[in-house]
Simulated scan of single mutants.
Amino acid sequence: MYAVSNVIGSLVFGNRLDYGSERLKKYMEIIIESFEVMGISGVLTVFPFVRYCPGDPFKCRKIHQQTKFMKNEFREMMQEHRAELNSTGEPKDLIDAYLREIEKNKDMDTYFCEDQLVQVIGDLYGAGTESSSTTLRWALIFMLHNQEVLFKVQAEIDDILGGRLPTMMDKQKMPYVEATLSEIQRMGDMVPFSVPHCTTEDVSFRDFFIPQGTMILPNLYSVHHNEAHFKDAFKFDPSRFLDDEGCYRPIKQLIPFGIGRRVCLGESLARMELFLFFTSLLQRFSPSLPSGEELPSLTGTLHITNEPPPLKVIFSARS
């Protein structure tokens, strides 16, 4: 999780945080707790009045405090960037680029503003850190459960990379790795219910009338486990994403990042992270269970993301 957050931090803030820093530790604690608590506080979406109950039974006040803390942190970073902003040089990160866009559009009616930038930073850094690290943990669990897939993945990695580090240019040469990552995302269902959307007008759909302004929660789990699109949908089988020649074959019903104009903001970054982390890890190590440990469950715990169970794993260096 720390490593994934630093990749995003490098792009958004322009720097990494030391793994031992209290600041990074605080950020990670808030992200972890927020995603856990938001699963409980989801009842407020249906029954908003319960926020006025004595105490804080659904942790909504705690979420508010944590959100406020992170937004203040992001605003401080923005002010530091604004003070150092050089309009003639290349922007060094997303904050620089966005601040320039705000300045460029200051006399126009646009969505480019500091409040929107704070929200974008929060979405990329918070959601991106948690979801990508959760996917990688599910990847380890599925590799422990499917040793034959693990061996095929490592064989393809060795064949294409040898001993050098992977790059994104290698992805198209590694169809089995890509197929395996696709199957991990399908079976792990890291975000089984997509980010809430809202109808902008009245809609009639399959005998249902959905009025304008209705919150819509797309059920991605039902799509990813639909037998009409994925034969033996509850079986882990990367080969479903390969054609007869062994080339990667995308299936359009695989939509872990959602679809349409409101697709996940960090999709391209997440796909890069998953490929590079997964490939690098299995290039250098073979995961296995400690003696006496049982295979971890394939049933997760649903908060906002589908959290995998805790697990103990040994990483043995590959020769």
Rank of each mutant, 00 (worst) to 15 (best):
F230W: 02
F285Q: 08
K231D: 14
L274K: 12
F278I: 07
D237Q: 15
F236H: 03
F257E: 00
P256W: 01
A270D: 00
M272P: 04
L282A: 06
L289E: 04
P308S: 03
R240F: 06
F275N: 13
P256D: 05
E273V: 05
F277N: 11
P290N: 14
F234V: 02
F278A: 11
K235N: 13
C264I: 09
Q283F: 10
R284W: 11
G266T: 05
E307C: 11
D243F: 02
L274W: 03
F241M: 05
L281R: 06
L269W: 00
E245D: 15
L302D: 09
L282H: 10
P250W: 01
K231F: 04
S297V: 12
D244N: 09
F275M: 06
L281Y: 00
L302R: 14
T301P: 01
S239D: 14
R284N: 15
T301N: 07
G260Q: 15
L302P: 04
R262E: 12
R271N: 01
S291N: 14
C247M: 10
F277E: 10
D244C: 03
L242H: 07
E273Y: 00
P290A: 09
L282Q: 12
T279W: 04
L254V: 07
L265C: 08
L281S: 09
P310H: 00
Q253D: 11
I255K: 10
R261P: 09
G246C: 07
N306V: 06
L276A: 12
P287M: 10
R271S: 00
P238A: 13
N306L: 13
L282T: 15
P308E: 04
I251D: 04
S288C: 15
L281K: 02
F234G: 07
P309T: 12
G260T: 12
L276W: 06
N306W: 01
C264H: 12
F236D: 09
L274E: 14
T279L: 13
P308A: 04
R284F: 07
P308D: 00
P308N: 06
E273C: 00
E245M: 04
L282K: 08
R284K: 15
P256Y: 02
L269H: 05
G292P: 10
Y248I: 12
C264D: 06
R284T: 09
I255V: 14
L295H: 05
R262W: 02
G246P: 00
F277K: 11
